[in-house]
Design a protein around this nucleic acid. Sequence first.
DNA 1: TGAATATATGAGCATTCATTCATATTTCAT
DNA 2: ATGAAATATGAATGAATGCTCATATATTCA
Lengths: 119, 119
Amino acid sequence: MVEKDFSEQEHQDALNHLKESIPANEELESMVNIFKAFGDMTRVKIILALSKTPLSVGEIADTLDMSQSSISHQLSLLRQLNLVTSVRHGRNIHYRLSDQHIITIFGQTKDHIIEDEND
Amino acid sequence: MVEKDFSEQEHQDALNHLKESIPANEELESMVNIFKAFGDMTRVKIILALSKTPLSVGEIADTLDMSQSSISHQLSLLRQLNLVTSVRHGRNIHYRLSDQHIITIFGQTKDHIIEDEND
DNA sequence: TGAATATATGAGCATTCATTCATATTTCAT
DNA sequence: ATGAAATATGAATGAATGCTCATATATTCA
């Protein structure tokens, strides 16, 4: 790589400090894990459903036409990431979004896509 | 599932319209694909690097201590999702973030994590 | 034109991941 | 206490995914 092509001092400066400016894995991991959680259709739908109202596991399974087990596994993952919280009510367990922030992030991402389409 | 536990009219209403309120797969797919892209350490680092300055493939590979091939594959994916754009300059190809929006989304997600830690 | 450099690409491989199936656990009702 | 209902969990499996290796393509330079 020869790479003297930008030929601007500005770019050289940026390059010099670039490596140090990238956070270490440990620092990025929690963010990456949250995006990983958002990168699955089932989990996105669970989150969208919970954004309307708190729901029991069975209600989510019904709504999404998926097995109880599958939903439960996914909720367990979302719970580990603190994206949802759960409270037992008798035989049911009510899940809710831990933070409306999440929906904002979905919105921002939708916006990015919209921008794309106007090309 | 008996589920008369919430016992609020409000929740019943929400439940009734819930299924229709969840967008279909086709509508969610592009968002899910973008999150999938963000759900990988290498791609996140590429994006963070590009947020500082446009870079050639080789410069990215150097910065992240990864193979040219691996970076090229990932850039190809990011390009398909319109997350980055590329322009050839002689032998090099300069990649840049297609939209600063992306960094805003990263920031929002970081914020979500910060909130978590204050529990 | 031919060698060198930068990037892209396809196949192969190992790992990760989402779902299913079977079963365990918890709680309620009788 | 016992059976039924709601949820959780572990193992197994097939699909998706990220990296590597080898090689193809494009561009510059001598």
